[in-house]
């Protein structure tokens, strides 16, 4: 066990090194790309209306990487679907560059958790789908598509069909396809949720590399603590019933990030903080104990 874990409570996730503090200061000087104002969503159910999200207010700055985390049922998916325009808010509004954003639009690209490549199109045709819908075409577009495919490292597969790709490769194409539309913000709804642990780590590193190189703002939904702390500039923690903002955490881990930082004191302190927010200590510790009768002989213990 790393020594940092022993003194977890002494660590303050709010303490930032001067470099990190300076990064956040510069980030907040950049223009706001996405702002959410008084966002609220109520669903009708058999037991009457249910409020999924209530009174959400936050801003995302240009080229910020923001993660949204929360327990299942806290309205993460509802939030990102409203941002993408796939669902309509009951109250409040979403502003993109200060203009009200209503309905789906290529300005807000989306990568889903489920595999959503069009199975009848090759990798290249999938990447060209958005620009083609906007009436573009020709050699120039093909070249552009190749660049995006190149960027996610799949040049060899540009003429492959989705069924020939692994899960991680499919999601890389989905990212390239969303970016080929040159959106103002990339919305990602647990995009690596269906991948195995090793592929997931690889994808996180790919995503950070892409984000560093191109002018893109990312809002990323996850339920994985490590993923949130590793990727994000700021983590928006949601509380359930109804879904509302618990805290917006500025991650004090310096950039560029790498996996080794996962045992740094800043990382652990931040993770610990997010963990206590989304898994508050239960009031009754008995709830966690199962009442199982002993079915093995006395002395036959595994501790």
């Amino acid at each position: 066990m790393p020594p940092a874990a022993l003194q977890i409570n002494d660590l303050d996730y709010r303490k930032q090194s001067p470099e990190v503090a300076d990064r956040f200061r510069r980030m907040k000087e950049r223009p706001v790309v996405l702002s959410v104002r008084g966002l609220e969503k109520t669903f009708d159910s058999h037991e009457g209306p249910v409020t999924a999200l209530k009174g959400l207010d936050f801003d995302v700055y240009r080229r910020e990487f923001m993660c949204v985390i929360g327990q299942s049922g806290c309205g993460k998916s509802t939030l990102i679907r409203m941002l993408a325009g796939l669902e309509y808010p009951t109250e409040g509004e979403v502003l993109l560059d200060g203009n009200p954003a209503k309905g789906p639009c290529p300005d807000r690209g989306m990568v889903f958790q489920a595999y959503t490549l069009f199975p009848w199109l090759t990798v290249k045709q999938n990447v060209m789908f958005g620009p083609k819908m906007a009436g573009r075409g020709g050699v120039e577009l093909e070249q552009e598509a190749r660049q995006w495919i190149d960027m996610v490292g799949l040049s060899k597969f540009e003429n492959s069909y989705p069924y020939q790709l692994s899960g991680g490769m499919k999601q890389r194409v989905a990212i390239a396809r969303a970016l080929a539309n040159q959106p103002r913000i990339l919305l990602m709804d647990e995009p690596f949720g269906a991948l195995d642990a090793q592929t997931r780590c690889q994808m996180q590193s790919y995503l950070l590399q892409i984000w560093q190189k191109i002018d893109i703002t990312i809002l990323f939904i996850t339920h994985d603590l490590d993923e949130a702390v590793y990727l994000a500039d700021r983590i928006l923690v949601l509380k359930a019933n109804p879904g509302r903002i618990d805290e917006i955490i500025e991650v004090p881990v310096p950039r560029p990030r790498d996996m080794d930082q996962m045992i740094s004191p800043e990382f652990i302190a931040t993770k610990h903080r997010v963990n206590t927010l989304i898994h508050p200590p239960t009031e009754d510790p008995k709830e966690e104990k199962l009442s199982i009768p002993r079915l093995t002989p006395v002395g036959d213990d595994v501790d």
């Binding site: 325009g85 690209g109 789908f129 819908m133």
Partner: peptide, 13 residues
């Protein structure tokens, strides 16, 4: 699949 339709929507179709 509804996801394919929604994807197309977010891609501007």
């Amino acid at each position: 699949r509804i996801e394919l339709i929604e994807t197309a929507q977010t891609l501007g179709a």
